[in-house]
Design a protein around this nucleic acid. Structure first.
Lengths: 205, 205
DNA sequence: AAAAATATTGAACACTGTTCAGCCAGCAAA
DNA sequence: TTTGCTGGCTGAACAGTGTTCAATATTTTT
């Protein structure tokens, strides 16, 4: 059974090798600029080889997509230890925005890029996404238990909050903060202070 | 002087012809799927011809980009007649979201797509964007004159509001509302009710 | 009518994702 | 040990991409 096991290990290692190269190039050039030949060249294999490990370019995309969500969820785990749910909510937003800023291209991959969803089993695809979403909804429910956000629908409220932080992140990632370039306002300023306003609105809601 | 004038007219007509075809194909297939050859075929000219009227593919992109902003500003004009600034603000958000929904691909072009800005004179590029932004800021300033949003910085506040409606639009355009598919919530529901929450937050701010 | 200017063509270049016949190393059975 | 076989790997090939440019066709000017 050792040889089969080794083969499996080697196969996994090769996948990882491709994924490492792909990550570098995808996050460097973006999805469309990155080419299979680029990746193949980086790992010193022929282009065709990649297709033994991944169905197509999208398949590689989805692997990275998942990795992104794993990374984000990792960053969120420590928040479980923040006792007060509203404090946890505030911290969650900061983690989210920080993730977007520090992992611009992962964020792009996860929330902005056009993911050509040919796959019918997209439910599997979005499993990670739902998990992330739930993190927010659970916090909001707990806030509500403590008397906050009275009478608000959690689905809609979560969408509003998500939209705000996503909006900021998306404007940042796609360089639309330049709209404030005239006023000499840096994206980081905008995001930090914009988020503070969101918080103070939520406090009063 | 008639021949030169006619030539100019013809040149403009040709540009329009290309732009018409480009719009159709761009908005149908998206920037990367659309090809110069597609456009050329549609107007029954050779691919090379297009390059006498546009520097490159990006140049066509930017022409459509501008058209999008013109269209959006057109939809905003009627709002000038809403006397109360806060009412105008509320209506502006609706116009914005409606534009995004009805002109999904224009919206994508304007606010989401990676615009490869080689052009150094990007200030010119964003003239339309600034104009749109100002529309919001002026309203906020007028709200402040009437006692609303006391002590808030208009730049940051406008960014927060813009982020929220942009976030909703971007999640809609890039099919991320599917995160709520489990709960059988349609994107339109999410946007409408999410926006209501934003409004009630702004009312209390 | 000839010359100059302009518009249009389509082949060519260097790239893209993807497929597939063929090659060859490593393992299994004889 | 030799044979047969499996499967990873190759690289040429296909159909597509944006862009350029010498040659051609058309129109305007002389």
């Amino acid at each position: 059974m050792t040889i089969a096991a080794r083969k499996l290990r080697e196969k996994e290692k090769m996948r990882e090798l491709i994924l490492d190269a792909a990550r570098t190039i995808f996050l460097e050039k973006g999805y469309f600029e990155a080419s299979i030949r680029n990746i193949a060249e980086k790992i010193e294999y022929s282009p065709g080889t990649i297709y033994t490990y991944f169905k197509d370019k999208d398949d590689i995309f989805h692997a990275l997509h998942e990795e992104g969500f794993r990374r984000m969820l990792d960053k969120m785990q420590p928040l479980q230890h923040v006792a007060d749910p509203f404090e946890r909510l505030k911290a969650l937003g900061l983690v989210y925005l920080e993730f977007a800023r520090n992992n611009k291209d992962f964020y792009d991959l996860m929330f902005i890029m056009q993911a050509p969803i040919k796959h019918e089993e997209e439910d599997e695809e979005w499993h990670m996404g739902h998990q992330t979403m739930n993190f927010l909804k659970v916090i909001l429910a707990q806030c509500q238990e403590r008397g906050r956000f009275k009478g608000q629908d959690i689905n809609y409220l979560s969408f509003t909050i998500w939209s705000t932080v996503h909006g900021m992140s998306a404007l940042y990632c796609r360089e639309r903060c330049k709209a404030y370039h005239n006023e000499n306002l840096e994206p980081i300023d905008l995001m930090d202070n914009g988020y503070k306003i969101l918080i103070s609105m939520l406090e009063k809601l």
